[in-house]
Nucleic acid binder design. Structure first.
Lengths: 154, 154
DNA sequence: CACAATAGACAATCTGGTTGTCGAAATCAA
DNA sequence: TTGATTTCGACAACCAGATTGTCTATTGTG
């Protein structure tokens, strides 16, 4: 089969979607039917130190306004809470709640389960090779969005 | 390095984005600065037979209203034209214009060039294996959206 | 101190999607 | 053949997730 570059793009997108759809379905089945992928990614960024809207925007490579909106829905759903920063009165410090952690853990477990299924289907070595090659192609930073993507200048 | 399932998802998304961003940048550099990936996909679907809004919606797995909007922008940009269907007065037959074909060809060339670069970086065999494995994982239909995806019930 | 940079709020806007409704045309079943 | 159902495309309202631009409060710096 001759594959075009566009087919490659579609394969990559298809792979991503397959994973993400399964995970949100799994989360919905466990009662978290209002979680979107972006929420999970945002919570992980918050948990790993992006504890204010501007910083979160930078890490996710979106504008701080977009990040603030995401935080607003996370707040509303109870997945994060907000306090003040003792060192900087401009900042509102964001913190992941236990409920947020629960969703993240379930999401991670679902992702890992999917990955294990893939490993069974194509072989663990092949999957590892696939990941390694993608990492090379993408520039490994892609896994850490703060270093990649079109920076939002804000 | 231990990779989680979520990292795998990010890698796939990152790969897709890397490709698509390069291609739209390349198209923009050649004067088509108003083309979005969805436009290219839609034109290809139209060219391959989805010559009316309802059918296009089915193929792209979106609602016919969304497809109609996409067609409207393609019309406005001059990438497709619209006529009547001699056999069914309800249908408006859509056709890709020469300008549309030009964009598709340039996009395809850009994708293929990117794919060749990747092949040089990780090896042609490895890239072929990666595509083969992704195809298995995704169910090859992902390359032909008309057969996959959450159907828009309309 | 004065001024530049930063955080976050708010508004307007854009894109790409959704549902729902509708009239016109086509198809199907009695 | 005719009446019911389906399908096509148009229109409206809406939504999610982004954008840019403007504003105030606060902080850091020459």
């Amino acid at each position: 089969m001759t594959r075009s570059g566009a087919d490659l793009a579609l394969l990559l997108l298809g792979g991503y979607r397959t994973l993400v759809e399964s995970v949100v379905a799994e989360l919905a089945a466990r009662g978290h039917d209002d979680v979107r992928p972006v929420h999970d990614f945002a919570m992980r960024a918050i948990a790993s130190g992006a504890d204010n809207a501007s910083e979160l925007g930078r890490r996710l490579a979106v504008s701080k306004q977009a990040a603030a909106k995401t935080i607003a829905v996370l707040l509303e759903r109870g997945y994060v809470r907000r306090g003040t920063d003792p060192d900087d009165a401009r900042r509102k410090r964001i913190e992941v709640t236990p409920l947020g952690w629960e969703v993240m853990h379930q999401g991670e477990a679902a992702f890992d389960e999917l990955r294990a299924q893939w490993a069974r289907r194509i072989g663990a070595d092949e999957l590892a090779a696939l990941e390694r090659q993608l990492a090379v192609l993408v520039g490994d930073d892609a896994v850490r969005p703060e270093a990649a993507g079109p920076a939002a200048h804000d």
